[in-house]
Nucleic acid binder design. Structure first.
Lengths: 102, 102
DNA sequence: GCCGATGTTCGAGAAAAGTCGAACTAGTTC
DNA sequence: GAACTAGTTCGACTTTTCTCGAACATCGGC
């Protein structure tokens, strides 16, 4: 219903792990971190937009990303600081490993 | 087929995250860490053993645990050192958070 | 060899997730 | 207000995961 991102404290750690446990979504997070703030449409452009939108919703609802509208586009960014605060090192460790193993 | 645990380096990070993203399995890991080395049957004893065995298999195949037979029992332990080496801080962070939010 | 104890595997049903075309919404521009 | 752009939602389908009873395997001990 609501388009709002959750408070990170309200999200179970299992939901965060689950969101990151899908290769497609992890790709998106990797790309997103490389790009900084970017429109939804720039991530995994090989996928149909319905699929992309689905995965971005999972990431958003897990508290990993924020979206902000600007014109017709929606800009995405990783909630890195908040994530680092609640899960120190987690994102860095996961992304470093994902980057190394490819 | 094989009963062997995988090399941790052969397991995709997504598989590790997936294994930890299920509340039942995360419970098992928490209990397991508290108990050190313990027989399979001591974790989540509220569940039927087929279910328990299923989740323990997921954990094993994700490289999170090792099993060793001793008499009729199989002793389980977390591969903490190996995990810490490949994913520094990850397990600590996840388990600390899970312990805090309950 | 027969039990009892501990786990695994099989198989079937239920629930959850992933995929993606098509229809829809919201904002911008002309 | 028609057309265009960027994303979301709906609906249907497929695939994966979860659950758990029942049958099976393995290891003692008697």
């Amino acid at each position: 219903m609501t388009d709002e991102e959750p408070q990170l404290t309200d999200v179970p750690v299992t939901a965060v792990l689950f969101a990151l446990s899908d290769p497609t979504r992890l790709d998106m997070v990797i790309e997103l971190r490389g790009l900084g703030e970017t429109p939804c449409g720039t991530l995994r452009t090989d996928l149909p937009k319905a699929t992309r939108s689905h995965h971005l919703k999972v990431l958003r609802e897990a508290g990993l990303t924020r979206q902000r509208r600007e014109g017709t586009a929606k800009y995405l960014r990783l909630r890195e600081d908040e994530l680092a605060q609640r899960f120190p090192g987690l994102l860095d460790t996961v992304l470093a490993d994902a980057a190394a193993h490819r």
